[in-house]
Write a protein that binds this DNA or RNA. Structure first.
Lengths: 127, 127, 127, 127
DNA sequence: GTGGTCTAGACCACA
DNA sequence: GTGGTCTAGACCACA
């Protein structure tokens, strides 16, 4: 996890997206315990309230659930994760393609750019 | 122009990006007059001050210039526009690819998804 | 006359200052006819209303007077011009020295800078 | 800090210049916390939005940086401050000398005036 | 009619 | 409490 936040968007939303990525990618597996709010707060150099707000987003999407006094866990319902993964991929693709279109880049050009860049983008980590 | 704003980001930044897209894509051509601050405010259902702030962003990037009492115009310096276009394409590609990577999508899968979706994304308009 | 205006200040005030300089320096001599409002407007690439407003400033300071239907003239009262010259020199010096002081430049340093720069500032024309 | 504004120039620009002077002169030192937006608004008898706009100017010039929710601080990069100081001194000298020239004051006369006035200008505070 | 500035006041994210 | 955004509305310089 590489917590560098973009000033243009609320931190709690960016954090929620990072954590969602971790679940979707399998980095955090079904049933895994999520680090405590305080641990995450330290990891992300962020106020616990902000972490709480981020985790609420995940819970709203049923990606995690809370065991009272025991902690928060990744859902064991693989269906939900898979569906969410599909939804996010679709959204990101859609946004990417319509952005390219708005900028005036044809499908053909997209392919050219993509083949140029693949394998080179190891530095950044935005979502 | 389709001004639907996302709650997650400052309106003035989203508006600035829409207008930047319009210039980069050639929809607004070098030397073209930008609609007046007040016109844009009405079009985007937003306060004139917010439009001002958005246009300041474009002016900061030298994409537009102001003729006192006359209006604002797209730069006639094609170089600047081209360079900005390249910069934005690079950034969007980079973000897209690292997002996909974070989600756990391989380059091969990206290609599959892309060929499925191309030509279908006519609804949305985000940047 | 070199009419390049600074965006940070009203044009009519800048124009008034240019014209005041011309009188104070003797470029426009006592009794000389001032170019017409329209001529000045063309020279300065400015609206006649703006020239009018600038000339009002000079008239307010008694540096020029209007002969109905005949035009505007530099005052023949040399006293007034001399006093105004003194006043402006004093103000400019005062502003300059207090600016330098605020920036933290000592009198000694001012001298060093001045001897370095004298004779070199032929390009600019601000007032 | 002495916040008296001149009607001829935008308040936010004058405020920006005052604060720039404070940094350049060392009155506000590298790393120092800038008074809060609201404090400055009260000090300058000005709207907080106007202060924001002024501070944006300083941030644009990298003289200050913002710590989210924590406040704004003078840059710790002394290089930047020194370069900006040089730039401003040069500009002020250049303006001063060309103004004097336009008024018809010779270099020799400037020296005479300067030696008369030095040490006497304690009242004013313009920049 | 054009852009620019400013205010009063509200509301948000984050700590 | 800190900075940031936004609105409604007023007023100015310039053409």
């Amino acid at each position: 996890m590489n917590y560098v936040f973009d000033n243009d968007k609320a931190i709690y939303l960016q954090l929620a997206q990072e954590l969602t990525s971790d679940i979707i990618s399998g980095k955090l597996k079904p049933g895994n315990k999520i680090p405590t709010v305080r641990e995450l707060a330290v990891l992300a150099s962020v106020n616990p309230n902000t972490v709480q707000k981020a985790l609420n987003e995940l819970e709203k999407n049923s990606l995690i659930y809370t065991e009272r006094t025991n902690g928060k866990y990744v859902t064991t319902n693989v269906e939900i994760i898979d569906q969410f993964k599909d939804k996010i991929i679709y959204e990101k693709l859609d946004t990417f393609l319509s952005d390219m279109k708005n900028i005036g880049i044809s499908d053909k050009e997209i392919n050219t750019y993509l083949s140029k860049m693949k394998g080179k983008n190891n530095e950044t980590n935005r979502m």
